[in-house]
Amino acid sequence: GAAPAAAEAAAARPAPQAFWITLAVGAAALALFYARLSFARLEIFKMLLASFFPLLILILSVLGSIVFGLATPTEAAAVGALGGALLAAAYGRLNLEVVKESVYLTAKTSAMVCWLFVGSAIFSAAFALLGGQELVETWVLGMNLSPTEFLILSQVLIFILGWPLEWTEIIVIFMPIFIPLLDNFGIDPLFFGLLVALNLQTAFLSPPVAMSAFYLKGVAPRHVTLNQIFAGMLPFMGIQIVAIVLLYVFPAIGMWLPQQLYGR
């Protein structure tokens, strides 16, 4: 009946040939990389693994618990907190002062985010009540934009907003203005969200504000100037722009995994 058919449809499917080819090429490239390592490079690589590998495990455990449905985002945050405590203990940095500082910073950040959501909810409600959402929708639809032109317009606006504002303000205040318009242009909200995420990363690397540059300046040696940081960030900003273009031209880059996991 229907039950066996559904069970057969849900059965594991064999991996496509492209997967195995990619895996073989990656393994060959990794073997070539190790074969060309000199002793000095090997020591640097070991230091990188010792410093980055534990953090990588922590990131994968948090994101993996969400992707594989083992935990909700809130529960995954608890997994990250536990992993951070274990890493601090492993590095011998776990003490009462560190715990007190972590609790204080967590409460401060949580309060800031909660007030942002409160402010954004009030703003969205007042904006819609006063007819602002309808005005924006009428204005955008009156421009007779194609989906591509709408995406370009929205991404340019978000890029400019990324200079003076943090990502939290943009997501909780300005995104509710754009999201109701997506149905009119037949744009997948997930695809739009991926474009926005890449766009914000690019905006944080872009002068004149480039908040990431100031973050780097705070931890860089004194002889490193902001101009040097800006110059070093420009190639990465170019890579981000290329990534946005590739994502738009080939949406499967960002949509393939969600489609496989959630059947979108």
Rank of each mutant, 00 (worst) to 15 (best):
P208W: 02
M255F: 03
E101D: 13
V25W: 09
L63N: 14
F191P: 02
L161E: 01
I21E: 02
G64T: 05
R93K: 15
G142K: 07
A40D: 00
L157G: 06
L141P: 08
L60K: 01
Y104S: 15
A18P: 02
S212L: 07
L182E: 05
V79Y: 06
M233A: 15
G1C: 00
G218W: 05
Q260Y: 08
G263T: 07
I171L: 15
L234E: 00
L70R: 14
E169S: 12
L165R: 01
A7Y: 10
L226T: 10
M237Y: 00
R93W: 10
L130A: 14
R93S: 15
W115S: 07
V245R: 03
W115C: 11
L30D: 10
Q259S: 14
I244L: 02
A9H: 06
A111S: 14
L55Y: 13
F174Y: 10
E169Y: 08
R41K: 03
A28F: 09
G263M: 07
A78F: 15
M47Y: 11
V219G: 09
A203L: 00
M237D: 01
I170R: 05
L261M: 12
I21W: 12
T106M: 10
G119C: 07
A81Y: 09
Y34M: 10
Q133D: 08
A28Q: 03
M143I: 04
S124M: 05
G26Y: 11
F68D: 02
A81K: 02
L261A: 03
A18E: 13
S110A: 13
L94D: 03
L55S: 13
R13N: 05
V62G: 03
Y34E: 04
S38N: 02
F68N: 09
P16H: 08
E149V: 07
E149G: 04
A231W: 10
Q201I: 02
L157T: 06
E137H: 10
E101Q: 12
V103D: 03
P14I: 04
L194F: 05
I170D: 02
L82K: 03
S65P: 04
I179L: 14
E149H: 06
T168Q: 14
F53H: 08
G193D: 02
F250E: 04
Q17P: 06
E101S: 12
G1L: 05
L23V: 14
M255C: 01
K100P: 00
W163S: 05
Q155S: 14
P251I: 01
A5W: 06
S124E: 07
R264Q: 11
F214C: 00
L70A: 12
T72S: 14
P14S: 06
I158G: 01
V103H: 01
G142I: 11
V113A: 14
E137N: 05
F230P: 02
A11G: 11
D188N: 13
V103R: 04
N184S: 15
V118I: 14
P258R: 06
F45L: 11
I160Q: 01
I170T: 04
A85S: 09
A28C: 10
N144Q: 14
S102I: 07
A126F: 06
I59M: 11
T168R: 01
A107K: 13
A252M: 04
V118F: 11
A71C: 13
G26Q: 12
P73F: 05
P258G: 08
